[in-house]
């Protein structure tokens, strides 16, 4: 479904990503792991069109998407929930969700999507008139995901959705992702919660210093001594 081939990404003169290739299959739950600065966010931002790939190609559903503007990539059903949420703090919850349905296609399905999102995250319904900037961290993360869902994603990429959440909230968050996957959505999850990600997802890539260091089925990586030592501290 998504095919990233030999991609290099630079920030100014600094190279952040070196010759990275990953692929995501339809209906798959993929996770990308790695320590801080490994290039996980850069990779997702590049796929979503925020960064330019200096070399290599990115294909989504057989169409080359590198170089396309982010909104065009959204329109194809490839949506990123960015790190740091990037919600609109001075707009209320409902308006934030509406913005996620800005494109003509999603604008036709606003009502159904709102119902679905409010069923998954009821707190958003209670707070729909409240300014997004006044929500708690967990609620803001739910809003960011809700906004992404408004755009009818087929492939949803999530960058650190559990960052800054309490363990309990983080677990709830990951559980809700599992539900999306069961409903048929393709997911790419980036997170520091290595253990939980490996248990949730089906397949994983491990990035190290901007390069793919490891890849494979989660069950196999979970059993791997090297992985356990390097990323889980056991």
């Amino acid at each position: 479904m998504l095919e990233v081939k030999n991609v290099d990404v630079f920030y100014g003169h600094l190279q952040a990503i070196w010759d990275v290739s990953i692929n995501v299959k339809e209906k798959e739950f993929l996770t990308i792991l790695g320590s801080n600065g490994a290039g996980k966010s850069t990779l997702l931002n590049t796929i979503a069109g925020l960064n330019r790939a200096a070399a290599g190609s990115i294909e989504y559903k057989g169409v080359k998407i590198n170089g396309l503007e982010p909104y065009k990539i959204c329109a194809m059903g490839l949506i990123l929930i960015p790190q740091g949420r990037k919600i609109f703090p001075m707009m209320n919850v409902l308006e934030n969700l509406q913005m996620g349905a800005y494109l003509p296609g999603p604008r036709k399905t606003v009502r159904q999507n709102l119902e679905k999102i409010f069923a998954t995250y009821p707190v958003l319904k209670d707070r729909s008139g409240q300014l997004a900037g006044t929500l708690s961290g967990g609620e803001q993360q739910m809003l960011a995901i809700g906004r992404g869902l408004m755009g009818n994603p087929e492939l949803l990429m999530l960058d650190e959705p559990t960052l800054g959440l309490s363990p309990k909230l983080a677990l709830d968050m990951l559980t809700s992702l599992k539900k999306f996957h069961e409903q048929g959505m393709t997911l790419v999850l980036v997170s520091q919660e290595t253990m939980q990600c490996l248990q949730l997802a089906e397949r994983a890539y491990v990035l190290e210093n901007g390069r793919v260091a490891l890849q494979g089925q989660c069950s196999i990586l979970l059993a791997d001594d090297k992985v356990r030592k390097a990323y889980m501290g056991i």
């Binding site: 909104y71 949420r85 609109f88 707009m91 913005m99 800005y102």
Partner: peptide, 25 residues
């Protein structure tokens, strides 16, 4: 209006607006 709200969205978080499917340009 949707377009007017998008103006405010771009104002408040440009990248967030891009990722919401708003044609920021």
């Amino acid at each position: 209006t949707y377009t007017g709200k998008a103006v405010r969205a771009v104002w408040q978080d440009r990248e967030g607006a891009m990722l919401s499917g708003i044609n920021v340009e």
